[in-house]
Nucleic acid binder design. Structure first.
Length: 154
DNA sequence: GCCAACGTTGGC
DNA sequence: GCCAACGTTGGC
């Protein structure tokens, strides 16, 4: 069964992996997600072709900086099995992996950042988890109307 | 660097 | 199953 493309927002710290890194590499496994809700969105919600806002967090000017696209179905995050990785999880096993990822590919970089501050100022976006204080979810769905609204803000 | 908010862990 | 302690996220 097919369905319309859906929309997502994924956070990354630019010091670790920025939109320019994604542009340079073209496509990248979104590893290191260690939150069940975020994992469930990747594993159960995302489909190849879904659109993604790329968001820079924990930086001088947090906000949406680009657009990416879901490029693969979910598969086990290899870093959970690597004892040398920061993302190693001793409680996970290859038989029963706990953490999943999708790969995302670069679509475009926005001409300028749509800042968190600007997003918070939009009444139309007040229901987004992103703009709520204390929100820490790193992968979240974006409604079609919210997606369109944000695109007009570029 | 600070700290509020929140998710996870583990003792009971 | 409760909840205090702890660790992490992420804006500022």
């Amino acid at each position: 069964m097919t369905r319309s493309p859906q929309y997502w927002l994924m956070k990354s710290e630019p010091d670790a992996f920025s939109i320019d890194d994604l542009k340079r590499k073209g496509q990248e496994p979104w590893d290191g997600v260690r939150n069940y809700q975020a994992r469930n969105f990747m594993r159960d919600g995302m489909r190849v072709g879904d659109k993604v806002f790329f968001y820079h967090s924990n930086c001088a000017e947090p906000g949406i900086v680009g657009i990416a696209e879901v490029a693969t179905d979910a598969y086990p995050d290899p870093s959970q099995f690597d004892p040398k990785s920061n993302y190693f999880d001793a409680a996970s096993s290859r038989d029963n992996p706990r953490w999943m990822l999708v790969e995302v590919k670069f679509v475009k970089k926005l001409k300028h950042t749509i800042t968190l501050k600007a997003l918070q100022a939009e009444p139309a976006l007040a229901d987004m988890p992103l703009v709520r204080k204390g929100n820490r979810l790193s992968v979240m769905p974006v409604g079609a109307a919210e997606w369109r609204h944000i695109l007009t803000m570029e």
